[in-house]
Design a protein around this nucleic acid. Sequence first.
DNA 1: ACGCTTAAAAAAATCGATATTATTCCCAAC
DNA 2: GTTGGGAATAATATCGATTTTTTTAAGCGT
Lengths: 247, 247
Amino acid sequence: MKQEDTELMMPESVDDFGLSDTSDKETSGRASMTSRAYARLRADIIAGVLIPGQKLKIEELRQLYDVGTSPIREALSLLTSDHFVERIDQRGFRVATVSAKEFDELLKTRCWLEERALRESIAHGNASWEEQVVLAAYRLSRVPRSAADDHFVANAEWEVRHKHFHVTLISACDSTMLMKFCDQLYDQNIRYRQLSGIQAYPTRDVTAEHGAICDAVLARDADLAAQLLVSHYVNTGDFLKDQLDAY
Amino acid sequence: MKQEDTELMMPESVDDFGLSDTSDKETSGRASMTSRAYARLRADIIAGVLIPGQKLKIEELRQLYDVGTSPIREALSLLTSDHFVERIDQRGFRVATVSAKEFDELLKTRCWLEERALRESIAHGNASWEEQVVLAAYRLSRVPRSAADDHFVANAEWEVRHKHFHVTLISACDSTMLMKFCDQLYDQNIRYRQLSGIQAYPTRDVTAEHGAICDAVLARDADLAAQLLVSHYVNTGDFLKDQLDAY
DNA sequence: ACGCTTAAAAAAATCGATATTATTCCCAAC
DNA sequence: GTTGGGAATAATATCGATTTTTTTAAGCGT
């Protein structure tokens, strides 16, 4: 469980969904202006507060987040590399656009990368990794997917644990780079999930799917685990795709 | 041959090795300060002028490249996401460190991603893609690997065409994201190649390897093509690894 | 009314200065 | 001789103002 990411990250807003890994890092109230701007912008983009394609005017953001131009500009530069923001020649920044085509690519690419990462993890993971997987799966199962019983309301704690489960699955793949790519794609996917504005539970039993993946992993059945993981993503993807006509 | 990358890039220095894609973009002398700083810093890091781990003092860079602090800072932020620069808490920036372990991971990850991308390209590429591959292979073969006959001197034109060949191979994979990841890893790899300071030709016939890959691709033999491509990378990797003790 | 040129407004990019934070170095105390 | 405190120094992070560039609007002639 090493923490090699020195990048700036400091969760602040509630909609953050554990995307900025708050794990074992100094979570003191003190944070650089750049980090704060970065975290808030990112959260607002993922949450859909900032609409895809929307112009991001420096002066507006400056006043909104109450910081100078430099931190805003730096945060936007960082978000550009995360593909949450697009920089236009000499015309400033805007929220990254979304499209059904891009979502397809995203889903596909995630499957390719996560499958590879999972297979490597299964091949190389040790006992400690197994335990971490079990623990992450258990913790995820202990929390309801929705914050309300009758209709769907995103449960922040479930989001955090869900991400942690998926990160743990591939954490033994022995490639920091691959893990970072998967992380990036995961976050992109969450954005699409938010934007699709799902209101209803999916009908399938997501918890059972997680359990099945966990079992296959513990049995070191790479083919089965990979197949289950990919279906898990594709199913969720198809579910979202239906609600993604707006873009 | 679409150009979807709106990111800032503007080749300036000679050591650039075609890493910033100058393809069909406005290559006028006019470029933003940020782009210039970005391109030059990047080139200097890849070329090894800026040593791994070296502190990057804003004031120094400001004077060296003759721009204000903001563009420098923004360029460094961008390079941070490219993993060419590391940002340390509140202590500024430094050139990303290198290590044998990281190189191993890099090589491994490249193989995984490029194999997937190549297989997808072979599965989905059309006639136009085939023609582009042939053309890229031919152009690469028309230029010597070394600028000098007796000892090895990097040939900028070969570098450009080599990259273009590899980009073309996977250009039909239908995933912009995957292509970007591969691009990133390619550039990281070039940095390692530069740092290793190779002086001699590799004994194997690199041109022949490219030809073989091209043939397998045209025959739509995915297994063979993938195997050849991976060997190509692993061979080059092993060759470099031997000379990488310094770090 | 339409297109072209030009002026005014808005916004982005950049700069230089200030405030903040880390580092260094010296000196005293143990 | 080492350790700890605390200036002095150096470097970063941030801000507000200035310079360019782009966008909008207006004017003019056809």
